[in-house]
């Protein structure tokens, strides 16, 4: 168990090391990076907005419910929803779902290329496949995932509003007052740091799983699943580490 962990870790680091090399042709890498940004960013926009809406709504409803009958004033709902979504919910939940969508896509794509000998074909041409297949995805995620997380945080706060204000649980002015109370800009920094780190995790781990996939379709399914699960665990682990270091 421990040994296989280090085996995978070593091979993972090695893959990332192979990745760092002068591109054969900058233009091709640029084009591929743009394509990935479109796939990862635009392709996930609707889902990210949808889940953000629910996340915000759930948080607001539940907090309003918990605050009912307590000494804490109702406008705290807005304040807690804002901080909870910015610091925790938007980056973590968005990236968990993105690991399911983007991550499993990456594992399936690279794994399929490995199985259909397309990676060998690229190698024979003299392409550095570790770089060409993995690097553009990581760079694209590095730029796009923080944007998605920021959008998620924004939409979640709107979702919270829609869940509690029109239903009359708290008034609009209370919610907005809460949103404006105790605002710490540093929390935004935490959010972006999390998003950048999670973005790297949810592309590099699935890429690793796909790159080293074995023979059949069973293995591809397994790699796909491992990609999602290991990205999820690593995301939650780094969530903990970042919280530890930044708060």
């Amino acid at each position: 168990m421990i040994l296989t962990f280090f085996y995978h870790l070593g091979r993972f680091v090695n893959l990332l090391k192979l990745m760092i090399a002068r591109p054969e042709n900058g233009g091709m890498y640029w084009k591929e990076t743009m394509r990935q940004m479109n796939d990862i960013g635009i392709g996930s926009l609707i889902i990210v907005c949808m889940i953000a809406l629910f996340i915000g709504a759930v948080s607001a409803v539940q907090i309003a419910y918990q605050l009912g009958g307590q000494i804490v004033p109702m406008y705290y709902t807005g304040y807690i929803v804002r901080d909870m979504t910015i610091i925790e919910m938007a980056p973590t939940l968005t990236c968990l779902v993105l690991a399911g969508k983007v991550g499993s896509n990456i594992a399936a794509e690279i794994g399929g290329m490995r199985q259909k000998e397309q990676i060998d074909a690229l190698e024979i041409m003299g392409v550095n496949t570790a770089a060409y297949l993995v690097f553009p995805k990581i760079i694209a995620a590095l730029f796009v995932v923080p944007l998605l997380v920021a959008i998620a945080a924004f939409v979640a706060i709107i979702g919270g509003y829609l869940a509690v204000v029109p239903t009359g649980m708290i008034t609009e002015s209370e919610y907005v007052f809460g949103l404006r109370s105790f605002f710490v800009p540093y929390n935004i920094t935490i959010m972006f740091v999390k998003a950048v780190v999670f973005g790297v995790i949810l592309t590099s781990i699935p890429a690793y799983q796909g790159y080293f996939v074995g023979g059949g379709s069973m293995e591809l399914g397994q790699a796909n699943m491992n990609a999602v699960v290991y990205s999820n665990i690593t995301i939650l682990f780094f969530d903990f580490i970042i919280t530890l270091m930044m708060t």
Binding site: G112, M113, E117, Q118, D120, I124, M125, N128
Partner: peptide, 18 residues
């Protein structure tokens, strides 16, 4: 890698990029 510029290979499943 330099040598591979002189190599062409046809794969069993063609290995075309989908």
């Amino acid at each position: 890698i330099d040598l591979r510029k002189d190599i062409g290979m046809l794969f069993q499943g063609s290995a075309l990029f989908d």
